[in-house]
Simulated scan of single mutants.
Amino acid sequence: KPIFILNDLYVYKEFRKKGIGAELLISAKDYCMLSGYKGLALETAINNPAQNLYERLGWKKNTSSLYYFWEAK
């Protein structure tokens, strides 16, 4: 089955800790299930405090692979 990739989810600082991020993630999960997709993937910084939110909502950290990026200069 295909997967959705969630890019650039951002909640402005003044609106954080109000449940907005959780509602956005839950809506994305609902849309994914209604569409018959396998799941959602997202990437975040190692020091992003939102990781606690992701894990609380059932997201699992992938520890079996690394992410690489080549930047054109």
Rank of each mutant, 00 (worst) to 15 (best):
K18W: 08
A28R: 08
K17M: 02
L40H: 01
C32E: 06
Y10P: 02
F69C: 02
P49C: 09
Y37I: 07
E71H: 04
A50S: 15
A45G: 10
I20S: 07
L25W: 06
L34S: 15
G19N: 10
G21W: 06
S64W: 10
Y10I: 10
R56W: 06
E23I: 04
N47C: 07
Y37T: 03
L40M: 08
G36D: 08
Y10L: 08
L9H: 01
L66I: 02
A45K: 09
E55Q: 13
L6M: 15
K38C: 00
T44H: 11
K73W: 05
F69Q: 09
Y37H: 11
Y31T: 09
E55F: 03
N47H: 12
I20Q: 02
L57D: 07
A50R: 01
N52L: 12
C32F: 08
L53D: 01
K38M: 00
G36Q: 02
G58C: 00
R56T: 07
A28Y: 00
G21R: 07
A72G: 06
I20K: 03
I3R: 14
Y12V: 14
K73P: 06
E23N: 07
K73F: 13
S65R: 10
C32H: 01
S64P: 03
Y68G: 03
P49D: 03
L57F: 04
F15W: 15
T44D: 00
Y10T: 10
D8T: 01
G58D: 09
N47D: 15
A50M: 11
N7V: 02
N47I: 07
Y54T: 03
N52Y: 15
K13F: 02
Y12I: 11
N62M: 05
S64G: 06
I26D: 09
K73M: 12
Y54Q: 04
R56F: 12
K18C: 14
M33F: 04
F69S: 08
W59N: 09
L40C: 09
L57K: 10
F69T: 13
P49T: 07
E14D: 12
K29Y: 04
P49L: 14
G36K: 12
K1S: 13
K73S: 15
Y67G: 06
A45D: 07
W70T: 01
T44N: 03
N48I: 14
F4L: 10
R16H: 03
Y68V: 04
V11C: 05
S35L: 05
I5D: 02
G19K: 05
K61T: 08
T44R: 10
L40W: 00
Y31L: 15
T44M: 13
Y31D: 07
E55G: 09
E43L: 06
K17F: 10
R16T: 13
K13N: 09
C32K: 01
L34E: 14
W59V: 05
K29W: 01
I5E: 12
Y31I: 12
Y10H: 14
L9T: 04
A22C: 00
Q51D: 00
N7R: 10
S64A: 13
C32G: 07
D8Q: 07
